[in-house]
């Protein structure tokens, strides 16, 4: 029943994503594409934070490394299709390197270490002007071609991004259902116990960072081609914190958490623009209220309803049992 409704729900959502852009103007299509890019990035962070329990506040650095890799390679005359795997590979390796501190420190200290890594990466992007363009950024980044089809148009690029997001979504889904996925959650729930059960904590910790980084890197590559201009600003610590916010608001450890979380982070502020000058104030307040209302994220709503129903049923059963017992007792005393 649950599985069935999930499948129906997913197909309806996919259909909506396929059809929606035809009813939107270019701004709407752009916003949807922007959202997809952040879903992809947040998916990676969800693996690191939500499934494997590694508190990372440096995700935007990988996002930036992916974006700069593609931009620099395309400016040097290489194809996007060479840049994309290169971005993924570089992020994978960097992810492993960043994972090493996680072997020594955990929780907030890990968050601090990754935040430090992010700042360092940002400084390199800003200061190494001969490679990255420094604060001037890199302009006129082209959009790729696919099988001779230009993806230059807003719609074409949207469908391309949607395709990439779905492919990576399915890959992640497969990964999480495999023994690896179980190992990641074991790591999160109780690392010491996981270790005693024979999970190689070292390898899985590093992998959770590396795979998460690949997702961010691919998202960064798509981002560079989407905006067609990059400078260091969107890859700083602030962005990492926003991505973290997306994962936690959506529901860490829920597969579709990043989809909802990225919508809160990307679409909600745009939608709130009717509040004019107040829109960011409203957005910040909404984040606080959402967190207090649903500490486990928006996708915990079904679980919460279920828990409430179960407790209601249990208390109803209890009440019934009490009445029955009372009736019995009444009978007993009457007899």
């Amino acid at each position: 029943m649950k599985k069935q409704s999930a499948i129906i729900f997913t197909s309806v959502a996919l259909l909506a994503l396929l059809v929606a852009p035809h009813f939107l103007k270019s701004y709407g299509v752009y916003l949807l594409t922007y959202w997809l890019v952040f879903i992809l990035a947040a998916m990676g962070l969800n693996l690191t934070v939500g499934y494997a329990g590694q508190k990372s506040l440096g995700h935007a650095a990988f996002f930036g490394i992916g974006a700069y890799t593609v931009a620099i390679m395309m400016k040097a005359g290489f194809s996007f299709w060479l840049g994309l795997p290169a971005a993924a590979a570089i992020c994978f390796v960097t992810g492993i390197l960043v994972g090493f501190p996680a072997l020594r420190v955990q929780t907030i200290y890990l968050a601090f270490a990754t935040l430090g890594f992010n700042t360092a990466a940002w400084l390199v992007m800003r200061n190494e002007e001969q490679y990255t363009g420094g604060t001037f950024g890199i302009n006129n980044i082209a959009r790729p071609e696919l099988f001779g089809l230009s993806l230059d148009g807003a719609l074409a690029y949207y469908y391309f991004t949607l395709g990439v997001t779905i492919v990576f979504g399915l890959l992640l889904f497969g990964l999480l259902r495999s023994p690896w996925g179980k190992a990641f959650t074991a790591l999160r729930d109780n690392p010491i116990r996981a270790e005693s059960l024979g999970v190689d904590v070292r390898n899985y910790t590093l992998l959770s960072f590396a795979i998460g980084a690949v997702y961010a890197g691919v998202a960064g590559a798509l981002f560079a081609s989407l905006v067609q201009f990059i400078d260091p600003a969107p890859f700083g610590v602030g962005q990492s914190i926003m991505m973290y916010l997306m994962v936690v608001i959506g529901g860490p450890g829920y597969f579709f958490g990043p989809v909802v979380g990225a919508a809160v982070g990307v679409v909600l502020p745009e939608w709130l623009r009717f509040a004019q000058d107040w829109y960011l104030f409203v957005f910040g307040s909404a984040v606080v209220l959402l967190m207090i209302w649903l500490p486990d994220g928006l996708l915990s709503i079904p679980d919460r309803i279920r828990a409430r129903r179960e407790s209601r049923e249990a208390s109803a059963a209890r009440a019934a049992a009490v009445t029955a017992a009372a009736a019995n007792a009444g009978k007993g005393s009457g007899a």
Binding site: F283, S285, V287, M291
Partner: peptide, 8 residues
């Protein structure tokens, strides 16, 4: 996350 929202 709540304090990030608060700061915004």
């Amino acid at each position: 996350v709540a304090t990030i929202g608060l700061s915004i």
